[in-house]
Computed example of a mutant assay.
Amino acid sequence: MKVRPAIASDIPHLAAITVRSLNEDAMDEYLYPGRHKHPVAYQAAYEKRNKNLIEWPSVRIMVAMTEPSDDKWSGAPEISGFCIWNRNGESKEVKEKWWPKQTLKQRMSLWMRDTYIAQAVEAIQNPSMSVVRYFTYGSKDEEYFDPKDKDPDDFWGVIEILVDQSFQRRGVGQLLLKWGFEQARVEQIPVSLAATKAGEALYFKVGMRHVGKWKWGPKPEMESKLFRWDPPKGDEATINAPATEAPATDVSTLDAPAT
């Protein structure tokens, strides 16, 4: 398999993978309590989210595509999974490297779309969503075991990583993580994410550390473990990523800690 940036025509496919993958996910059920009653609106919410993210300057949506050498090759390339990465950092150097140049109109459009008013209107209009839950979700601060593991100004965050059910246990999750690990290695900055229970084994397997927790909902069980990967230093700065063919643990949704 190979990894490439997502394009506009991928958006419906990514939303479909999300809906299939999160059927029993507690976090998704919390945010979209009407998802089973309004399946069309539910998938449309993810299509709109992906469309917005693919246009956001600091976000990179990377998709894993099948190739003829893969055992699941169907005769045509298929999206087996995707990872949404966000390059956190506001420095001039970061913006010059990772933020594509935009017109004033484009910048204003992105800013207006990201306001609370715009997000509230979107939530109200979508019957699969809960407005109250949307705006109280993830409102608690992260808790770290060691203050030094708290996210710095610059880091790569995983917003979400999902592998289509028919392609799980084939190393797709590891392949998608490898892309972000390589960016972080070159820049010598960490990778940070919040994991559901289903994803924890994968993150331990690729060398990430459990550094704290993030409470995303009001009930005690509504929390995720925080994971971090720090790039090796000096002569050790090489990626020992698992081979693409290695079996991968099932991957579920992830949301990066608030920055």
Rank of each mutant, 00 (worst) to 15 (best):
G212H: 04
E160D: 14
K140R: 13
S69V: 04
I161S: 09
K101D: 11
F181D: 05
V40G: 03
Q168I: 15
V206W: 07
P242Y: 10
M108T: 08
I79P: 02
P190Q: 10
E122I: 06
A44W: 02
P77L: 02
I189L: 13
K197N: 08
Y203T: 03
G157W: 00
P190G: 04
G75K: 00
R185A: 13
W111S: 05
E55L: 06
N126H: 05
A256L: 11
P12H: 10
R35P: 01
I54C: 00
I54W: 00
T18K: 00
D235E: 13
P220K: 12
R169H: 15
Q168G: 07
G81H: 01
P152D: 13
A41K: 07
V63I: 11
K150M: 10
P39W: 06
D70R: 07
S80Y: 03
I61K: 02
L31Q: 03
Q183K: 09
D149C: 05
P33D: 05
S224C: 06
G89T: 09
E223L: 14
R35Y: 02
W56D: 09
A6D: 02
R60L: 15
K48E: 09
D141I: 04
R113V: 08
D230G: 05
D70K: 01
M112H: 00
G180Q: 01
D28F: 02
F167M: 10
G207H: 03
R113Q: 15
M62L: 07
I124P: 00
M129T: 08
E236V: 10
W85K: 01
T244M: 07
A237P: 00
E122R: 10
Q168L: 12
D25Q: 08
V40F: 04
S91F: 09
A256I: 11
H210D: 15
D149E: 11
